[in-house]
Design a protein around this nucleic acid. Sequence first.
DNA 1: GTCGAGATTATCT
DNA 2: GATAATCTCGACC
Length: 202
Amino acid sequence: MFDRELLSRPSVEVAPLLLGAIIRGRGVSVRLTEVEAYLGGVDPGSHAFRGETPRNRVMFGEPGHLYTYFTYGMHVCANVVCSPVGIATAVLLRAGEVVDGVELARERRTTSRTDADLARGPARLVVALGIELADNGSDLESGDVTLELAGKQESFEQGPRTGVSGAGGTVDFPWRFWIPGDPTVSPYKASLPKKRSRSATL
DNA sequence: GTCGAGATTATCT
DNA sequence: GATAATCTCGACC
């Protein structure tokens, strides 16, 4: 099932709906267990916050497309573009469970020692699926990478985002969603703000 | 299990 | 030139 109307809603509404959805890409299928919403314009942590640039152009485009970008010089992350044309919101795919093509995923992610690690993390998930920077702008309905929405809403939890460095304060938009109890969800969700004050008895 | 630091390059100011 | 929606490895508990 693919519903572009559904995806044209703001990413904060779409994000939880993507939990449990299946992403199929180049021989490997992943069931999403963790996602994160970004709203250009009002979200300092979003690439689109300061307006349209060649890189984030796709986010301003049609919903239901794939937005990939390079980060930290060696990693690629993938997002599902949401909201109508002209409004830049997207959902970052943070983690998932490989449900098909496990062997191929293992070959791609040789550093993973357990299957739960194959797609635990944005860049890892991308590698497992065989997604590349060249897939930027690809349609998730007819492209090499496709999205299969879950039939029903999974139960989920939501909390603060992690890893977003910019935006003094990262604004506390609790736009991170995950399926509770799933082993493929990033473990660092419990991480505290910055330094864990060992005398954290406060 | 957790914490800390380094690697490495496209993109933007 | 500075920044970054991260990952991996090493040390410690």
